[in-house]
Computed example of a mutant assay.
Amino acid sequence: MRLLLVILPLFAFILNIFGLMRMIPLYFTIPLLFATIYITVYSFQNKKQFKGFKKEWDRSIS
Protein backbone atom coordinates (compact mmCIF):
# COMPACT_ATOMS: atom_id res chain seq x y z
CA MET A 1 0.00 0.00 0.00
CA ARG A 2 2.80 2.42 0.88
CA LEU A 3 4.56 1.66 -2.38
CA LEU A 4 1.41 2.61 -4.26
CA LEU A 5 1.20 5.86 -2.29
CA VAL A 6 4.70 6.73 -3.48
CA ILE A 7 4.20 5.69 -7.10
CA LEU A 8 0.91 7.53 -7.66
CA PRO A 9 2.26 11.06 -7.00
CA LEU A 10 5.26 10.31 -9.24
CA PHE A 11 2.91 9.20 -12.01
CA ALA A 12 0.75 12.30 -11.49
CA PHE A 13 3.87 14.48 -11.59
CA ILE A 14 4.90 12.96 -14.93
CA LEU A 15 1.38 13.57 -16.25
CA ASN A 16 1.65 17.16 -15.04
CA ILE A 17 4.91 17.57 -16.99
CA PHE A 18 3.03 16.35 -20.07
CA GLY A 19 0.35 18.88 -19.24
CA LEU A 20 2.93 21.66 -19.10
CA MET A 21 4.10 20.58 -22.55
CA ARG A 22 0.44 20.91 -23.65
CA MET A 23 0.12 17.21 -24.50
CA ILE A 24 -2.58 16.65 -21.83
CA PRO A 25 -4.97 19.36 -20.58
CA LEU A 26 -3.76 21.08 -17.41
CA TYR A 27 -7.26 21.22 -15.94
CA PHE A 28 -7.02 17.42 -15.71
CA THR A 29 -3.44 17.03 -14.47
CA ILE A 30 -3.25 19.71 -11.77
CA PRO A 31 -6.21 18.45 -9.66
CA LEU A 32 -4.95 14.88 -10.10
CA LEU A 33 -1.50 15.87 -8.82
CA PHE A 34 -3.00 17.79 -5.90
CA ALA A 35 -5.31 14.90 -4.95
CA THR A 36 -2.55 12.28 -5.02
CA ILE A 37 -0.19 14.42 -2.94
CA TYR A 38 -2.98 15.17 -0.46
CA ILE A 39 -3.93 11.49 -0.10
CA THR A 40 -0.28 10.48 0.32
CA VAL A 41 0.45 13.06 3.01
CA TYR A 42 -2.83 12.36 4.81
CA SER A 43 -2.23 8.61 4.89
CA PHE A 44 1.35 8.90 6.13
CA GLN A 45 0.34 11.31 8.89
CA ASN A 46 -2.75 9.39 9.97
CA LYS A 47 -1.02 6.02 10.59
CA LYS A 48 0.43 6.56 14.08
CA GLN A 49 -2.19 8.73 15.68
CA PHE A 50 -2.81 8.29 19.40
CA LYS A 51 -6.49 7.53 20.00
CA GLY A 52 -6.49 7.55 23.79
CA PHE A 53 -6.63 4.94 26.48
CA LYS A 54 -9.63 2.65 26.80
CA LYS A 55 -11.51 3.00 30.02
CA GLU A 56 -12.15 -0.10 32.13
CA TRP A 57 -15.90 -0.08 31.55
CA ASP A 58 -15.37 0.17 27.76
CA ARG A 59 -13.41 -3.09 27.81
CA SER A 60 -16.21 -4.92 29.59
CA ILE A 61 -18.78 -3.79 27.01
CA SER A 62 -16.71 -4.79 23.97
Rank of each mutant, 00 (worst) to 15 (best):
M1C: 09
M1Y: 08
R2Y: 09
L3A: 12
L3C: 04
L4C: 12
L4G: 14
L4T: 11
L5P: 02
L5H: 03
L8V: 13
P9I: 10
P9G: 02
P9T: 12
L10C: 14
F11G: 03
F11H: 08
A12V: 02
A12L: 06
F13S: 09
F13L: 15
F13P: 00
I14Q: 08
I14T: 07
I14K: 06
L15H: 10
L15A: 14
L15V: 07
L15F: 14
N16Y: 10
I17D: 01
F18N: 03
F18M: 03
L20K: 04
M21S: 06
M21C: 10
M21V: 12
R22V: 02
R22G: 00
I24M: 01
I24H: 01
I24Q: 04
P25F: 04
P25N: 07
P25W: 02
L26R: 02
L26G: 00
L26S: 01
Y27I: 07
T29W: 07
T29M: 03
T29D: 10
P31I: 08
P31R: 09
P31A: 05
L32E: 10
L32Y: 14
L33M: 15
F34S: 11
F34N: 04
A35G: 07
I37M: 12
I37V: 13
Y38N: 03
I39P: 06
T40I: 01
T40P: 02
V41N: 00
V41K: 07
Y42K: 09
Y42R: 03
S43N: 09
S43Y: 02
S43I: 04
S43E: 05
F44C: 04
Q45A: 06
N46G: 09
K48V: 03
Q49T: 13
F50V: 04
K51D: 09
F53C: 06
F53H: 10
F53E: 15
K55I: 08
K55R: 13
D58P: 02
D58F: 11
D58E: 15
R59N: 15
R59P: 08
S60F: 14
S60G: 11
S60W: 13
I61D: 06
S62Y: 09
S62M: 07
